[in-house]
């Protein structure tokens, strides 16, 4: 596969490229949201230029709502379009809880497969806005509990593009959680050829032998940094990037634990009843005989997301805390 001439693509541009390519490929793909048109510069300018190219009929500026916006996208999806909804922040998902949870997620099952909802809801989640309780939340814990939803959280430009293309082609509702912090901080040369990354597959970002750090999103980079630190201490840590949070890649988790025998789960979302709890339970049920030490979690404490830099630093896991927790995992046996 040929790479572009070293012209590295940002995470934000990768998302934009995926939208443009899918809209070119399939005329049923439409964009809906506030400020997705060219009149205003959408969030991170990701949809800039798409309305000029594809028209206002396919790149639709919507009045400010969450429930009616997502509900309308569900209706359009049932009727054969493939809407991609742009919500500025994942925090806004709560306003669309009804159409997502009560309508979209149940539709295929409750109609015994008669109706499909090929819908993608894009939003930026996680740290990066430095703006307190309503612009940095991680919503995956709210939605991972809901049967019938897929949740994707890419950590690299390559994955952001390939996974978004897969999400758009998927016949089910997909929450696509772009990471706010990574939009413009990462660059990566992407293949010229088209590629699509199947949903539901984790990827090992670093191979190791003594412990697996299971994580996703921006925490992948903290985990990699922690692994580098730990290597200087003679500790070999594997970093597993989940990429898709629902459905989880149980096979990849089990495969990693089969040789590392220890696990630390790291996420930005708060601790209690978060995704880490589910992963830990799955490991306990299915990988118990592989384990040499208890599974541990490192997550944000059970308080709302703070605004001040000092509080935010105390709130989020970082490389130092991950490394320290790994040392505890290794000692716990």
């Amino acid at each position: 596969m040929e790479l572009t001439n070293g012209a590295a693509t940002t995470y934000a541009q990768a998302v934009s490229d995926a939208l443009r390519e899918e809209m070119e490929r399939d005329s049923s793909v439409i964009l809906m949201g506030e400020d997705v048109g060219d009149r205003a510069h959408s969030h991170q300018a990701i949809t800039s230029g798409l309305q000029a190219r594809f028209g206002a009929e396919r790149v639709i500026d919507m009045p400010v709502t969450q429930s009616a916006l997502v509900g309308a996208a569900v209706g359009a999806a049932i009727c054969g379009l493939r809407p991609v909804v742009d919500l500025p922040d994942a925090d806004f998902l709560s306003g669309a809880f009804n159409p997502i949870v009560q309508v979209a997620a149940k539709m295929h099952w409750r109609t015994a497969g008669k109706l499909r909802v090929p819908l993608v809801i894009r939003c930026s989640s996680g740290m990066g806005a430095h703006d307190g309780p309503w612009h940095s939340q991680n919503p995956e814990g709210w939605f991972a509990h809901v049967p019938g939803l897929k949740i994707v959280a890419p950590a690299t430009p390559y994955d952001a593009k390939g996974l978004l293309k897969a999400a758009i082609r998927d016949d089910n509702p997909v929450l696509f959680l772009e990471h706010h912090y990574l939009y413009r901080r990462l660059r990566e040369p992407l293949p010229k050829e088209e590629y699509v990354i199947p949903l539901g597959r984790a990827e090992v970002r670093r191979f190791g032998e003594q412990v697996t750090i299971i994580t996703y999103g921006a925490m992948v980079y903290h985990a990699l940094e922690a692994a580098e630190t730990l290597e200087t201490e003679g500790i070999s840590a594997e970093v597993l990037d989940l990429r898709t949070l629902a459905p989880l890649d149980h096979a990849a988790i089990a495969e990693s634990l089969a040789h590392t025998h220890r696990a630390l789960i790291v996420h930005e979302d708060t601790l209690t009843a978060g995704l880490g709890a589910e992963i830990a339970a799955q490991i306990a049920e299915h990988c118990f005989t592989d384990l040499r030490t208890p599974v541990m979690r490192l997550a944000a404490p059970d308080v709302p997301y703070p605004a001040a830099t000092e509080l935010e630093a105390a709130y989020l896991p970082d490389a130092a805390r991950i490394a320290e927790k790994v040392r505890r995992v290794l000692c716990a046996g």
Binding site: A72, G75, P83
Partner: peptide, 9 residues
């Protein structure tokens, strides 16, 4: 809203 989406389609 779902009905409006059908109308949008």
């Amino acid at each position: 809203p779902v009905a409006a989406g059908a109308a949008l389609a």
